[in-house]
Structures are given as C-alpha cells and as structure tokens.
C-alpha cells in the first residue's frame, strides 16, 4: 500500500510534469533552431510571409486557404498547402513529413503537436506544378520546365543561396 504522503508527492510530480508539458505546448515559438527543432528546407528566396509570423500563424493561413479552395474553388493561391510543400520539400526524402528531418515534422515532433494534414494530403510535391510556381522567377521556371524532375539539382543551390542570405540556423546537413 502506498502511504498518503508518498501518494501526494507522486501526484505532485504528475501535476508538475503535466504543467511543463502544457507550457511547452503553448509556446512552440520558443523552439529555437538548433535545439532539435526546425531545420530550414526551402527554395525561392523568401516565404510568403515573415518567418516569425509563419511560425506562429501558418496553421491559420492554411486553415483559411483550405476553406477558400475546398468550399469556393479558389485555387492557385500562394497560401495553399501544395505551395508550401513545393518550397519546403526535403530533397533527400522528397517529402515534408516523412521523417523528423523533414520540414513539417522537424518542428511538430519537437513541439509534440500532431499534424493532421498528411492523413489525406500528399506530403510530396506534384512534379508538374513547378512550372506554375508563383514564387520562382520566370527564368527559374523555364529551367524547371526543361528538367523532367524539377526538384533535383536546382534546389540545393537555391537553398544554399537562401541560407546564406538569411543566415538561418544550421539548415540542411
């Protein structure tokens, strides 16, 4: 039998760890790069919004756009999930969510927040969409069209340029 004092201390521990978990969950933005958190995988030279804004609000933007696309048929927005995947795909896995190294899971597994997108959505880019990419400049676009798989070769270069210009964390190893 557990004596009451012992039980109280166990309960205390439980409550404390629960509180810690809650706090960690409430502040995902404190997950700094390099703490096992988010690794930048990207092409193009900037995201559709500020990086800081995206960290806190990407889910709202996605949710807003999903209503636009699903309910009203508004397509081709730069805020679409497809567009996110297009830029943030990890060339090593050709996915944003297949491993902890991938863009989405890097943060989400660190913050222990379940992603419910990829139960239905493909976490891989659609090869043919590169041609109509809203961020890539026209010159790059034709380059993408020339190559059948627009993902290999070109991306690492772009990413290195981006990483250099933004000086963001460790980037892709």
């Amino acid at each position: 039998m557990i004596n009451p004092a012992k039980r109280r201390s166990v309960l205390g521990w439980l409550a404390a760890s629960l509180l810690a978990l809650l706090l960690a969950g409430a502040m995902p933005a404190t997950a700094q790069d390099g703490q096992g958190g988010h690794k930048l995988i990207a092409k193009g030279d900037k995201c559709v919004r500020d990086v800081d804004f995206m960290r806190r609000n990407h889910m709202n933007i996605l949710k807003h756009q999903r209503v636009e696309t699903m309910r009203k048929g508004v397509r081709g927005s730069q805020d679409s999930l497809k567009n996110c995947i297009e830029c943030h795909v990890n060339p090593a896995t050709n996915s944003v969510a297949s491993s902890k190294e991938d863009f989405c899971m890097g943060c989400h597994s660190y913050a222990a927040v379940k992603v419910d997108c990829f139960e239905c959505h493909s976490s891989k880019p659609k090869a043919s969409i590169v041609g109509t990419h809203p961020i890539i400049a026209p010159g790059q676009q034709s380059e993408g069209k020339d190559k059948q798989s627009g993902l290999s070769g070109k991306i690492p270069r772009q990413m290195q340029a981006k990483l250099a210009s933004l000086n963001m964390g460790e980037g892709v190893k």
Binding site: R75, E119, S122
Partner: peptide, 26 residues
C-alpha cells in the same frame, strides 16, 4: 499513401466522385 497532390483522400472519411473538381477549376 501516395495520393495525387490535387486529390487528398484518407482513412476514416467518406468520399465520392468530385466531378474532378480540381480539373474543372483549371
């Protein structure tokens, strides 16, 4: 797995012909 990026579909939901809405929109 391996859904068409234009046609999300997954376990536990109901689905049906969409009249290829993603194509109609294009």
């Amino acid at each position: 797995e391996d859904q068409n990026p234009d046609v999300p579909r997954g376990k536990g939901c109901v689905e049906a012909c969409t009249l290829c809405v993603h194509r109609i929109d294009k």
